[in-house]
Computed example of a mutant assay.
Amino acid sequence: CPWQNGKAERFNRTLQENWAYRQPFLTNQARHDALAPWLEHYNYARAHTACGGQPPISRVSPTS
């Protein structure tokens, strides 16, 4: 439910708007190949307002 899982729902919306519907994918392989670079950008380069302008990876604590 969106009201119980807001973060996942927001990610899904961003994924749709900024990746899935940006360009037509002619094959499933083309869609598959385009996802990893987009996720890399989303998690490591894209500034997020909720993270104070930092990418999400900046909020992850390293584990040992």
Rank of each mutant, 00 (worst) to 15 (best):
L26H: 10
P56H: 09
K7Y: 09
R22T: 15
Q29Y: 05
A34V: 06
R46A: 06
P56M: 15
H48T: 03
Y42A: 01
F11C: 08
N28M: 09
C51R: 02
L15G: 00
Y21C: 07
T14C: 09
Q23K: 14
F11M: 07
T63S: 10
W19G: 00
L39P: 00
R31H: 06
W19E: 09
W3H: 08
Q54R: 15
H32Y: 12
E9H: 11
P62I: 09
A50G: 02
D33I: 00
F11I: 05
E17S: 07
I57R: 09
E9A: 07
R13P: 03
C1E: 06
D33M: 06
S61A: 12
P62M: 08
P24F: 01
R59K: 14
T63L: 14
E40I: 03
H48K: 04
T14D: 10
P55V: 13
H32F: 13
N18R: 13
A45S: 09
Q4C: 09
R46L: 09
G53W: 04
C1Y: 13
A30H: 09
V60E: 00
P62D: 10
G52Y: 02
T49D: 10
W38H: 06
A8C: 11
A36R: 15
W19Y: 14
P55F: 15
A8G: 02
N5T: 12
K7Q: 12
V60C: 01
H41Q: 06
P55A: 12
E40T: 11
Q16D: 05
N28K: 12
N18P: 00
Q54V: 01
L15T: 02
F11D: 07
L15E: 01
L26V: 03
E40R: 14
A20K: 14
R10M: 11
N28W: 10
E40S: 03
A30D: 13
P62E: 07
S61Y: 07
C1K: 04
E9V: 10
Q23L: 08
R22C: 07
W38G: 04
Q54N: 14
G52L: 02
Y42F: 14
S64A: 14
R22D: 05
A20Q: 12
P2E: 13
E17R: 14
S64V: 11
L26W: 06
A50Y: 05
Q4L: 08
R59E: 01
C51L: 05
Y42V: 03
A36M: 15
N5P: 00
Y21P: 01
G53S: 01
R13M: 04
P24I: 01
